[in-house]
Structures are given as C-alpha cells and as structure tokens.
C-alpha cells in the first residue's frame, strides 16, 4: 500500500498545491484521466473546508492529506484538527440538518455546506467522520485496470 502524505499550514494559498499533488499521485496510481478533474475538485473542497475550520477555530497545526494507492482503489484522506461540533454529517450538506441557532458565522456554514454538497455529488465512495483529534473526510476512486504496455 503506497502512500504519499502532505502536511500544509492552514492557508488558502496552499490548497492549490494540495490539488496538484493529489491529481499527480492519482494519475500515477492509475485513476482514469476522465475522473482526475473530480479528484482535483473533491480534494480541493475537502482542503478548503479544513483550512476554513482551522482558521475559524484558530488551530495552529497543519491540515493533513494522505493519498493511498491500494490494489483496486485510490483513496484520499483529509484530516483537520478543528474541535467539534462543526456539522460533519453529510446529511447537513443537503440542508436537512441546520447548524445550531446562534452559531457565530452563518456565512461560513453555508459555504461549508456547499463544499460537502459538491463532494457528495462528485464522489460515490465518501465517508465523513470525526474523532477526538478532529474531522476526517475519506474519499475513494476505483483504479482503472492496468493496460499492457505496447
């Protein structure tokens, strides 16, 4: 199981770097060219969300991106160290759950919801979880069968 790990300070200008690295590793792993745009967009959304959470909660640690090449699939994990309770349930992305009243920044929440909505619309295999450290978005794509080199 080959992995590439990327840590970056929670700054918006680094999200593009994460997109480029993720797309490059996905291409090398054998993810279909037609899907690479989706990989780029999904990882960008997950990283933007993590950066936003770190900035909002003044978390000094970096955002973590892990790119995992397995036999039949390619997975990306984006982890943040932001304290809960940020709305992490994908159900909140389609508006069925709203953040608690009195939340400090409703504008940030709506963008956060839109990011999750885009991820859930793009990626079939996506899991959003949280642990004592923070939140984790895990996304997977199938790897195209290897073609015989000519």
């Amino acid at each position: 199981m080959a992995t590439v790990e990327l840590l970056f300070s929670a700054l918006p200008e680094h999200v593009r770097t994460a997109r480029l690295v993720a797309a490059a590793v996905a291409r090398r792993a054998g993810v279909d060219e037609a899907v690479l745009d989706e990989v780029r967009l999904a990882v960008g959304e997950a990283c933007s969300r993590a950066v936003g959470l770190h900035i909002t909660h003044e978390v000094a640690t970096p955002v973590r991106v892990t790119l995992i090449e397995e036999e039949k699939k390619f997975s990306i994990e984006v982890g943040d160290d932001a304290p809960r309770p940020a709305p992490l349930d994908l159900a909140s992305a389609n508006g069925s759950e709203r953040p608690a009243p009195g939340h400090e920044d409703p504008g940030a929440d709506s963008e956060d919801d839109m990011g999750l909505a885009v991820i859930s619309g793009l990626v079939d295999d996506v899991e959003v979880t949280a642990d004592e450290r923070g939140g984790l978005i895990r996304m997977s794509w199938p790897i195209a069968p290897a073609t015989v080199a000519s």
């Binding site: 780029r40 959304e45 933007s48 709506s110 963008e111 839109m114 990011g115 885009v118």
Partner: peptide
C-alpha cells in the same frame, strides 16, 4: 480552468 464551491458562493 477551475471553479470550486467558494467561487460558486
């Protein structure tokens, strides 16, 4: 070349 949800917002 690229548009994400922040741009949509």
């Amino acid at each position: 070349d690229f548009l994400d949800s922040t741009g949509l917002g």
